[in-house]
């Protein structure tokens, strides 16, 4: 299921002009977005950008200063707190497990808090989803950090949440544990679970999310990772040659699709209107100029480039 499918139904989360201030400190301001049913929505931003505060606000742990939101179909208000919390799950950055209790005992406690009927069935399904059924009777204090994170994820799945908020789920994990958590999130995505993922790991967002929003107190950008790249960066080609051109302007200027160029340590980067048209024309021009071509390909901007571009803009704006 994708965001597009979800858009046909009522969104899982609707946020309109939401703000949260702590006295004079602004946690986040005038944030507006929607998350579709079944969508994996990435919420990116540097430390202190307001990501966790946004999750806590949508999870009714803290009250917004202004604005409105609807979470899992329920309007955000103090009165609706228990109703919203029964429909969602939040996995905080720290697993927050009772370390003297076993995995099973931890989950039994939370099954009671959600007033689940078939406690054993819910627990078995949740443990099965995170591949921890065999460790059910282990004390949580004896588990590795990665396994604890998986228990926390099982706990978050207990009530079959309409929206699952994952706050930095791979923070502090080693690469193997991180990969396991990524695989779990991917499997949840395949099952159609709506996931709201806060992270500052950009490769994680790029790999797992249908859409991402970049928050730096205010919402800076929102869209699919490829859309964001196109919004922020002109399309370009990277050219690597065995030796620099004697007269690059003469070569590149002769190709109509090339709008500009700059020399880089490894060759040249050319701004182009359409890479598909420009590439063959440029190849012909370089061959005509007797250049030895090592590679000629469209530039790939990562989500990290997008993120850094925006964050740097904010830093520059603040310094002005």
């Amino acid at each position: 299921m994708s965001a597009l499918d979800g858009s046909k139904r009522e969104p899982a989360v609707v946020v309109e002009h939401l703000s949260k201030h702590f006295a004079k400190r602004v946690a986040f301001d005038d944030v507006t977005f929607e998350v579709g049913v079944g969508e994996v929505f990435g919420f990116l931003g540097p430390n202190g950008a307001g990501k966790t505060t946004t999750v806590r606000t949508l999870g009714t742990l803290i009250a917004p200063s202004s604005g409105s939101a609807t979470v899992a179909g329920v309007p955000l208000s103090p009165r609706n707190g228990p109703a919203i919390r029964s429909r969602i799950s939040i996995m905080p950055e720290s697993p927050g497990l009772y370390l003297r209790l076993s995995v099973l005992e931890n989950l039994e406690c939370f099954a009671g808090l959600y007033e689940l009927d078939d406690v054993r069935g819910h627990i078995d399904r949740a443990l099965g989803a995170v591949n921890l059924a065999e460790r059910a009777r282990d004390l949580c204090g004896s588990l590795s950090k990665g396994l604890r994170q998986r228990v926390a994820l099982a706990r978050a799945l207990l009530n079959d949440p309409a929206v699952l908020f994952l706050d930095e789920p791979t923070s502090g994990l080693d690469p193997v544990a991180t990969r396991e958590v990524h695989e779990l999130i991917a499997s949840l995505r395949e099952r159609g679970v709506t996931i709201f993922l806060t992270t500052h790991r950009l490769e994680e967002a790029e790999r797992l999310c249908d859409r991402v929003a970049i928050l730096n107190t205010t919402l800076r950008l929102i869209g699919r990772p490829d859309e964001l790249r196109q919004q922020l960066f002109r399309r370009s080609l990277d050219v690597r040659l065995r030796a620099p051109l004697a007269d690059p302007e003469a070569v590149f200027g002769a190709v109509g699709e090339v709008q500009g160029w700059e020399q880089t340590p490894s060759g040249y980067t050319l701004a182009v209107s359409d890479p598909d048209l420009a590439t063959p024309a440029l190849a012909r021009a370089l061959v005509a100029a007797e250049a030895d071509i090592l590679s000629l390909a469209e530039s790939r901007h990562s989500l990290e480039d997008v993120y850094l571009e925006l964050v740097n803009e904010d830093v520059e704006a603040k310094s002005r």
Binding site: G59, L61, P82, I90, S94, L97, L99, F110, L113, E115
Partner: peptide, 14 residues
């Protein structure tokens, strides 16, 4: 102190 309060408060408990 143990970090277990937030998960509990995130449930429907009053």
């Amino acid at each position: 102190d143990q970090g277990t309060l937030e998960p509990v408060l995130s449930t429907p408990i009053r």
